[in-house]
């Protein structure tokens, strides 16, 4: 039975990750336009991927905050909007090539490896690229990752009841894209932190039957 609701904007990378055999029993796609409080009631966690529809999330923000108030977990990646989140996300150029051009200057310079999502990760597994930064986070937030300029990349807070973990990394989207091959390490830890279940350690595969006429939508 699925434990994590992945708020779904109809994007193929979200779909590829959530329907992959190693994750599909743990994640349930929740189409953002059909999102209701009843749809999330039995879940342990929500994941809001990069390339989400911020306007619709704003309309439905009460569902997210009520979920947190029930003591549950929410993971947010990529960009966000101040219309529903008390934090300032700002866009920055994406650097996919730092490991080729200057491996000594990764987009994240400081990581708290004590956090369960980051425990045991190498620096390369803990950051591939970032989509912007947070220039303001909630006052009580704990900072987990920063860049060399001191901007916040990853933070979490318990001030809403449960735990909200936000990052400008994009593990769900990039794992769906499958052009970065080490992301099982991050996403498996994230999945375990969200659901209490560690996925099988093998590399993510694709089930072709879930595409086309067999699409699970």
């Amino acid at each position: 039975m699925a434990k994590i609701g992945l708020i779904f904007n109809g994007v193929w990378s979200h779909y590829a990750m959530a329907t992959a055999p190693k994750y599909r029993d743990l994640y349930e796609l929740l189409y953002v336009h059909d999102l209701t409080a009843a749809a999330v009631a039995d879940l342990d966690a929500l994941a809001i991927p990069f390339q989400s529809n911020q306007a619709v999330l704003t309309e439905k923000k009460d569902i997210i905050y009520d979920f947190l108030a029930a003591g549950k977990k929410v993971f947010l990646e990529g960009d966000s909007s101040t219309a529903w989140l008390d934090a300032q996300w700002e866009d920055r150029p994406v650097n996919n090539y730092w490991w080729v051009t200057d491996p000594t200057k990764p987009p994240v310079s400081d990581t708290n490896y004590d956090h369960p999502v980051y425990q045991g990760l190498t620096p390369r597994q803990a950051c591939w690229h970032t989509h912007g930064v947070y220039t303001r986070v909630p006052e009580a937030a704990e900072i987990l990752q920063t860049n060399a300029g001191g901007d916040v990349i990853t933070w979490q807070t318990q001030q809403y009841g449960g735990t909200l973990l936000a990052t400008t990394l994009d593990p769900i989207v990039e794992h769906g894209v499958q052009q970065i091959t080490h992301l099982d390490n991050y996403v498996d830890r994230l999945t375990e932190w969200l659901s209490g279940v560690r996925p099988t350690p093998d590399r993510m595969t694709i089930d072709a039957a879930a595409y086309g006429e067999g699409a699970l939508v």
Binding site: Y15, T205, A208, A210, Y211, G212
Partner: peptide, 19 residues
């Protein structure tokens, strides 16, 4: 120019593959 994983494009179908 996207991964059309549902069957809405006449005659053609995109499939993900990481093999």
């Amino acid at each position: 120019c996207d991964g059309f994983f549902t069957a809405w494009v006449p005659g053609n179908q995109w499939l993900m593959d990481n093999s």
